[in-house]
Design a protein around this nucleic acid. Sequence first.
DNA 1: AGCGTTCCCGGGAACGCTCCCAAATCGTAT
DNA 2: ATACGATTTGGGAGCGTTCCCGGGAACGCT
Lengths: 335, 335
Amino acid sequence: MPKDANIYDIARFAGVSKSTVSRVLNGHKGVSGETRARVRKAIEDCTYIPNNSARSLSSISTKSIVVLVHGITNPFFSRMISLILEKLNGKGFDVILHSCELDENTSMADTAISIYKEKRPKGMILLGGYFEENYQSLQMIGVPIVMASTTVLKSDDRTWFSSVTIDDEGEGAKMAEYVCLNGHRDIAVIGQYHLREKGMARVFNDYGITPTAVGLDYDKAYLFKTGYKAARRILKQGTHTCLLCLSDVLAIGAIKAVHDKGLRIPEDISVVGFDGIENGEYTNPTLTTFVQPFDEMAVQSVSTLLGLINDKEPHRHIILHTTLEKGGSFAPVKG
Amino acid sequence: MPKDANIYDIARFAGVSKSTVSRVLNGHKGVSGETRARVRKAIEDCTYIPNNSARSLSSISTKSIVVLVHGITNPFFSRMISLILEKLNGKGFDVILHSCELDENTSMADTAISIYKEKRPKGMILLGGYFEENYQSLQMIGVPIVMASTTVLKSDDRTWFSSVTIDDEGEGAKMAEYVCLNGHRDIAVIGQYHLREKGMARVFNDYGITPTAVGLDYDKAYLFKTGYKAARRILKQGTHTCLLCLSDVLAIGAIKAVHDKGLRIPEDISVVGFDGIENGEYTNPTLTTFVQPFDEMAVQSVSTLLGLINDKEPHRHIILHTTLEKGGSFAPVKG
DNA sequence: AGCGTTCCCGGGAACGCTCCCAAATCGTAT
DNA sequence: ATACGATTTGGGAGCGTTCCCGGGAACGCT
C-alpha cells in the first residue's frame, strides 16, 4: 500500500504552505477564494484524508464522543445507543462505545476519567448506571458530559454536567399511586432504584401500607433471570395482588415466574413494568408499563451534548416523563 | 485543570529517560528489573495515562477497531457487542461502533469503506447484515476484516476476509428435519435468510412438502412486530401446525399473534425459534429454539481478528453449530 | 509619499510519543 | 589487565497536525 499523502504533499501540490492547507481544512478564514479553491481541488485529487491522530495530538482534542454505558445488554439502552449513534455519526463524530462494569473497586466516575485521559474525546455521554461519590475528579477534567438515564445520588452541585432523565421520584410516586388507586394493598416491589423507591415510599405511606421490597444487585437488575428469581421468592409468600417491577426486563421475568406457578395474570396477580421496551408488547398478556420516552431521551442527550460542545451553552437538566401503557397484565382489585 | 503528566514527567520522577519509560510502557525488553519497578511506581504514583493520539501518530497506527453492526436493536447482537467490547477493551483497543442502515443505495461494503477511510482502524468486525456484491473495493483496502454472523452471498473468493458464522444451510436443514421428524407437515416459515431457507427447502423436498413461506424485509426481520404481523397473516389461513421462525424475535412476535387469536401453544400450533436470545426463556410457554453459540461467536471473532492483526495469520472461516433448546412451544403432531 | 490597517500567507515551535542509534556499564573469557 | 560481547540506558529525529507570530502586499487615508 502506497504511503498516504500528508499535508505537505497537498501544500506542494497546490503550491501553497501547509498552514494554508490547514486553514482550508479547518474552515478558518484568512484564505482567498481562489487559493481556497485550489487547495480544495488538491485535496480532492489526492484523495487526501487528514491524519486524525496528528490532529488530535496537536489540538489536544479529537472528533470523538465516548459513550460509556452501564449494562449494554439491557434492551432499554440498545435503542438509545442506536439513536445516539445515528445522530452523532451524522454530525461527523466518532462514537467510542465503552461498556462499564461497576463493582466496589471501580465507580462510573473512575472509569470515565481513565477513558477520558486515553481517548480525549470532545464529549461524553454516560448512559445508565449510577453516580454516588468522587465525582469531584470527573468535574475537574472539564469535558462536556451528559448523563442520560443515570441516577445521580448526593450531588448538590449540578453545574458541571448536564443530564437527561426522568423524574425518578415522581415516576415512582406515579406508579405507586396507580396501583393503590386501583385497590391494591398487598404489593411487592421488585428492583432497586433509590429515587424511584423513595417516591413510592411516600405514596405507600400515605395509604398506610408497607409493600414487600425485593432488593437486588444493581448490576443484575437488567437480567430477565433476576426478575424471575425475585418473583419466585415473592410468590412463595402467596399474599400479594400486585408485582410492581422497576423495569420491564424484571417484569417479563416475573411474568414467567407467575405462569410457572400456575397463577393467572391479571386475575390472580397483576404485574406492572417500567421502561416500555419493545418486548413488553409481546408478553402474554401484554405488559402494563410506564413507558420512558427513550427516543426523546436519546435526541435530547445528543442535542444537549452538541450544545455544550459547539455553543458552550450552560449545563441543562432535562426531565422527561413516562406515559402509562395499559396492557393486560394489570387489573384493579375486585370488590 | 492542571496539565496532565506526560512521559517526560514520569521520566524525571523516576530518574530515568523518556526512552526507558517508553520501554516499560510497551513491555519492551532491555530494562533492568530494578529500573522497571521504579518506573512502574512512578507511573502509578502520578496516575499517568499515555496519550493515545501521540502513540498512534508516532507508530503510524491507531489502536482502534471498528465494529459495524447492522441492526443494533436486535437483542441477538447486544450480547455479542458487549462481549466484543469487553475483550477488545481489555486488549487496549478502542471500539468505534457504527450502526449501519442498509438500503438500495448503500451496501455494507460501501459503508465499511467510507468508515475505514475516516477512522483508519487496525481492524474491522462486521456484525450481521449481508454481503452481496461490490466487495472488491473492500478487499482492496487490505485491512483485517472479520465478518461475524454476516451472510455472504456469491463470494467465491474467501481469502481476503475471515468469518465466524453458523452453517446456515445446514442449520436450516436441521430445523426442517426436526419438525418433519416430529410429524409436522403443514408448516409456515417466517423470515428470510437465503441460505437457511435453501437448507430447509432440500429437506422439505425430501419429505415431499411445500411449506408456506412468508418473506419479509431483511431490515425489519429483527423487530417483534414483524413476526407478529407475519404470524397473523399466516393464521388467517388456519391450516398450519407449526410456525418455523428464523429468529427468536420473530418467534416471540408470532407467539403473541397465536395467543391473540385464542389458540394454544403447542396444543393447537407449535412455534420454533432460532437464535437463543435471553427473552426466549421468558415467553409463555418457553420458546423451543435453536441456540446460536453467540458467546463463542464473539470470542472467536475477536481472537480471529487479533490473530490477523498481531500474528498476520491467514484468514480463517470458522463455522459453529447451534444446539436445540427444548422449550414448551413445540410438540410433535399427535396421531 | 508616508503611514496605518487589513488581508493573506509562510515558517517555526509544539503536541507526546516511538524508534533507532550510540554511549555507558557490566560481565566474562582471554 | 585487556578486549569484547551483551545488556541497559540516554539522546535525537521524526510522526502530521495546529497554532502563533511575523512579514509582505494591497488599500485607503492624510
